[in-house]
Amino acid sequence: MTRFEFVNKLNGRLYLLSENERRDIIDEYMGHIDLKMQEGKSEAEAIRDFGDIDELADEILQAYHIDSSKVGDRTLDIYIRQRVDYIGRAAEKFLSFSARQIARLFAEFLVLMLLLSLMRWPIISCANIFSYMFAWMPDIIYNSLRTIIYFIANIINLALAFVLIYHFINKRIMDNNPTPPTPPHSGSSQGFSGDASIGSQVEKFSNMAVDKAEKFGRSALNAGEKTGSFIINFAVAIIKISLVLTVGLPGAIITICAIVGTVLAWVLYIGSGIGFLGLCICGVGVCIMAIAFMSWLCGLLGGKTNA
């Protein structure tokens, strides 16, 4: 295992600790590995001496009086916290970009949207052809089969869209550092190659992104070239403000609600004509969004700024 992987894994297991505590502990381990290497041991050997990472993390958490077995029961809770944290970090990262970077990002996003709309065609066509194969069946069976096929096609479509957007955020926002870091170690790019499934690749990307964001998030906030005229800066400021409203840390909850609402509405709309249920869910999503937004705004006015 390389140092990079070690830090990555340990960071993942210790998310319950505050960032400062984690940084402190990891710094100590890095120093320890350095000294071991000075003694002539290899990096892998030094890391192997720490034993099993899960056990190590358990012991660290125990030192903070956190019982990891109880924590295990709230996996979903933690997963959601991690994701919200992730969206928040993406937003923070985005705010640190310069005008030029944002303009490029916007153009790339448009291309991505175009790609997504093009991607719909082959999948929908497949669903069309597939459903014609059942045209000889009685109307009731044919119609229900058709609905199911379109539903599946749309699910595939949505999954692809999610993966692509997630990938886009990771590659373009999380990895886009104003000052390119020196690659920590070999093996850090292993995540990109190999025939791993999309799921595990996404997981790897997210791990890498989280680690990178952690390392460079702070410096990135202050860095970035400030170019462009007043008008561009003004436009960027407006874009930034609107982005804070939609993807800022409190906005993460809003975004999730909105996405879930609209996604469900969309799927049901295409699946069964004008889906009344879909519209209802969308409405609920929008309502939650509005409530979340209002409460966030109240919090903001009360002096709790998040951006």
Partner: peptide
């Protein structure tokens, strides 16, 4: 285990 002393510290 060397790793466990740091959290203790």
């Amino acid at each position: 285990n060397e790793g466990t002393i740091y959290p203790l510290l």
